[in-house]
Design a protein around this nucleic acid. Structure first.
Lengths: 334, 334
DNA sequence: ATAATTTTGATTGACGTACCTCAATTTGGT
DNA sequence: ACCAAATTGAGGTACGTCAATCAAAATTAT
């Protein structure tokens, strides 16, 4: 009923089981001629290793970690949910997931968390700091694989990045902003923190496209909302008081404040925000927000886990560890 | 090293291995009191079945089929690629995938293909015809699970639909069309076949939104391009000759013809098309197309396989078998 | 030809679960 | 207290691979 097994390969190749095993798991001590015979038999029978049996036999248990900032932004909550949702199924496959939360922007805390790690691989959503890059190097030399999540540290020892291409995200936002404004008006950009790499990259992409293709749009200097609803609300109201604001690009969290502010502004500015959370979803539905750029947390966590698994199994280019998909949501496709 | 096993559960519950097995696989013949004891022990130890061992033991081999129309549209090619790309990894997990191609729009051929099926579950991209619905019922009663792919047959015996919500897709297209046109102009809609459910649903959603919110947009009667590039090109050129066309919504395949036609029309109409193929991708890049609505084939096939697996394993609401994500692409996020 | 070395064979015991049989024990009814 | 029925225990085999051992055979060097 099942496919061909090592026995079939051994029989066809006219060698013993032990030799087949030696070839398949390249343990050496096999002559070139025999290796060829076995490989031919593998090809001819179409033998494919039974992963279940292999994992069972070598009693493999994968231990993966997520290091993620705490904080009550909707996005973090979505991310945690996405991980939790997979936990049960993952346990059946002998994959143990541990989630470590650290205070946001607390570099020392993040370093401490990384230092304590005991696992096969880790996915980190980290700030950009030299201490953290050093810690990555230490983890790598300790045999722990490292991937970055959502926000990348490109020049670190990390082996992969799972998240969107933030420059492209900014460019996309800029393009839609230009079109929705019919090419003119004043636009306000609100980041969480300009020092955060993902935010600054989005800003850059946004600016670039508007300059290239929508020259009549005026860009106000970018402001920092600290991912905080009250701060965002205040900043938006101040800007709208100082001059008419036709468009708003909100890069970080704090969309609840943005929604409150927009309700008071007339005519309603075009608003483009990030991450499909309950807040942004209802903002879309009520017509307060015009477009939401989202990195799907379920996809991201699934891909992070798959990447960590590939890395620990020593597979190289099996999975493309490139950026994940950027999803766009209008009021019609939430 | 590994987690708790059935042995640990048996020990803690003070029952034999056989009894634990009877409870876990509910084979009956166990008193309520004992069931409770075992379940408590499972909870206390945190026992989770080792899927690898379970599948190995019951020498499970999943046999899944895809029934898909042949034809050289880019979308079908993407779909096939997505399936092929997964085949190797799936084989390691004892999942055999068979792809059966039938001539497009050939109901009799599709029925014949379905009748010959010998597998655990099938994902079908089928036309809407009573013969096919009947065939679904037969498959179900033969113990073969059925899901529809890309195009749904809602009132059939199918147990799930993997694809986008086509009405929502049409609404999304309509909303962006309205915005890009600044609320006025004449719009041409080209479907592959008006009888195809996915196409007619998209049309409906598209029309609805424009009527509701962009009343000044004029809709030409929908035409059928038969998913053929030459036909589409001819239809577009004819329409553009008859009156100025400000926007085009292309619902089916044949985008190569659309691109050729658009190059000759001035001013360039806004073009919204479906499926991110090499053709639509370069159309975006060259500025010929303004928006591409895409159902990610990789996600769709992965979800189809997961759904078939869940159904075969008797799991009920494990995976949400709802619509997959609708992805939007502008020139900036391809 | 002999010794040293490399290559191959034969065999065995895990891994954790599923599934089966047969005997032993407990339970319930009267 | 007795019988029938329901429940539980004990034990085994199988799944396909990994990992190891030890002996046998083939090859190479001296």
């Amino acid at each position: 009923m099942g496919g061909p097994t090592v026995h079939d390969v051994a029989e066809l190749a006219q060698v013993s089981l032990a030799t087949v095993d030696r070839v398949l798991n390249n343990r050496g001590s096999v002559s070139a001629k025999t290796v060829a015979k076995v490989k031919a038999a593998v090809a001819q029978t179409g033998y494919v290793r039974n992963l279940a049996a292999a994992n069972l036999s070598r009693r493999r248990v994968y231990r993966f970690c997520f290091v993620i900032p705490s904080g009550e932004t909707g996005f973090i909550a979505l991310l945690l949910n996405a991980i939790e949702a997979q936990r049960k199924a993952l346990m059946e496959e002998q994959i143990l997931i541990q989630i470590i939360q650290t205070r946001a922007f607390d570099v020392a805390g993040q370093v401490a968390a990384l230092r304590k790690l005991d696992c096969d691989a880790v996915a980190v959503m980290a700030s950009e700091a030299p201490e953290i890059q050093e810690e990555f190097s230490r983890l790598r030399s300790a045999g722990i694989h490292v991937v970055t999540l959502v926000s990348d540290l490109p020049h670190s020892a990390r082996e992969g990045y799972i998240g969107i291409d933030n420059v492209a995200a900014g460019r996309t936002a800029g393009d839609f902003m230009g079109r929705f404004l019919h090419g003119s008006g004043t636009v306000l950009m609100i980041a969480g923190a300009l020092s955060a790499r993902d935010h600054s990259e989005r800003l850059m992409g946004f600016r670039l496209v508007l300059q290239e293709r929508y020259g009549n749009v005026t860009l106000l200097p970018a402001v920092e909302g600290s991912d905080d609803a009250a701060t965002v609300e205040k900043l938006v109201l101040e800007a709208a008081a100082a001059q008419p604001v036709a468009g708003i690009y909100a890069i970080g969290a704090g969309n609840r404040g943005l929604a409150r502010a927009i309700k008071t502004i007339s005519p309603k500015p075009v608003a483009i925000v990030h991450e499909l959370t309950p807040t942004s979803r209802s903002g879309l539905r009520e017509g307060l927000f015009d477009l939401v750029l989202d990195q799907d947390t379920a996809t991201a966590t699934a891909k992070a886990i798959k990447t960590m698994r590939d890395l620990t199994e020593g597979r190289e280019r099996t999975t493309d560890i490139g950026p994940i998909r950027l999803n766009l949501y209008s009021r019609e496709n939430i």
